[in-house]
Design a protein around this nucleic acid. Structure first.
Lengths: 260, 260
DNA sequence: CGCTAATGTTTGATAAGTGAACAAAAACAA
DNA sequence: TTGTTTTTGTTCACTTATCAAACATTAGCG
């Protein structure tokens, strides 16, 4: 890498502001503002109206937005962008049948996640009609420190990266049960590494009991985590360990063998 | 719109090439090339290496790609872009429990799609362990003309847009049963409009029998289609009409009432 | 109706992005 | 080692995008 930014105000010569701003424009459409006028977009992204207009016209020409009467909204084509990530994970097709098998045998939702920064991100999910209709679509994020999948993935990190995570993460008490002390979290993660699975009770949400196992690729690298989530009133801790863990570990090995 | 491009070679003054190219760079990562070197990216997108490098460094700085030893790959953050579209559809959360209900009662996969151009695009899906482990994730596309959901959505288009679709679509015979004559397709679509549901038999894929109904928002506009797909050997046409259609139409109305 | 206020569109000086050419560093073979 | 090839990084005249401010167009309102 070249040395840039000797002065604080200096801009990175290799940073394409136009592109970065365009991506922000896409992301600026959300639940609160599903459709926006040109001026709305300009304000929300700190752009001049002239600039906002160019972004919107470009997106429109590419089919990513459509305009009904001066108001712009995203089209389903935007999903293509996210889809190209899923396509690079050659395993997301492979794993679905295995996850369906888990769902079928245990009668609980099954998910797959990867680690991105301090979050786990859902890459696949088989929901079942449950007590709590949780809505965690592909792309959804949850904090890694308070989820079973997060701990499984953190346990697979090299020591220096785990260290970096622990020193930078802010551990909010999401429920009274959430582990918020870095040292305690570290020993939990070490335990997860030894036992090769993780059960978390109500640390993310009251009533939620989740079990996760790592899934390895053919080079012995953890590539994602598998999870089954249930309710404390439905599945005892004892049953989770006796019934859920073995099945999930077995399926994890089957997936490894089936991966490309 | 202002008048542009009097001469053929003229460029659109309001088109941001940098942004459009950047989006292409993201899309250029796919199953065949999940990780690429700088040169690969340059070749695949017809960019100079200098340019490709700027795009990759920008994406890296934003966290959308990471580089392991000179090879670049997308990160899960890319899903955020697609996710922002789902967020603008305020209903994708609302509908999941209803779809789970359908899946539970009928024992078959249930999907929701919208129309984008000539395709239907999946915005939600509840898979079940079935005969054929189909892999249709959120964002996946299928040709509208050969799917039950496509016909339901086409039936809801204003006459001029339907006309435009019929005259521009290329109707490939995907199976021996596929309707490929525009006139026949039109009358099929008209029938779908009258009966308010669509059953398609093996037009997309041999053995596949699918049922679709439209779902309206509170302003009597069709906003998406619900679908249940099964196998001809598992569900008779008679049962599909007697059992599937009424339940799906009932759930469709419940969704309308529940929409924001 | 005219007036105001807001939004959308064009314009010209300034800033950012571009590819071709060049430089540097790997990768590979003899 | 040395030379050859391939890939990656940098520079710089030229093109594109940007902002601010002008102008044009609507929308609202008494």
């Amino acid at each position: 890498m070249s040395v840039k930014n000797s002065q604080p105000g200096a801009v990175d010569k290799d940073f394409l502001a136009t592109f970065a701003r365009g991506l922000e424009v896409i992301k600026s459409f959300d639940t609160q503002t599903p459709s926006m006028s040109l001026t709305d977009v300009a304000k929300k992204n700190n752009l001049s109206r002239a600039s906002a207009r160019r972004f919107l016209l470009t997106l429109q020409k590419l089919g990513y937005v459509k305009s009904d009467d001066k108001r712009f909204k995203l089209t389903a084509r935007v999903l293509e962008l996210g889809y190209s990530y899923l396509a690079t994970l050659n395993f997301s097709e492979t794993i679905t049948p295995f996850m369906e098998k888990i769902t079928h045998k245990l009668g609980e939702s099954c998910s797959a996640t990867v680690l991105d920064g301090q979050d786990v991100v859902y890459i696949a999910r088989i929901p079942v009609r449950g007590l709590i209709p949780v809505n965690l679509q592909i792309g959804a994020r949850l904090p890694a420190y308070a989820t079973s999948m997060g701990r499984v993935l953190l346990a697979a990190l090299p020591e220096d990266q785990l260290e970096a995570f622990l020193s930078s993460a802010t551990l909010e008490p999401l429920t009274p049960y959430t582990v918020t002390a870095a040292e305690q979290l570290r020993s939990e993660i070490e335990r997860v590494r030894r036992q090769a699975y993780c059960i978390i009770d109500q640390e993310l949400e009251l009533g939620l009991r989740t079990v996760a196992v790592p899934v390895y690729d053919r080079n012995q690298h953890v590539c994602f985590a598998l999870n089954v989530s249930s309710h404390v009133s439905k599945v005892s801790l004892e049953r989770a360990e006796r019934e859920f863990v073995p099945l999930m570990q077995q399926v994890s090995q089957q997936i490894t063998a089936a991966l490309p």
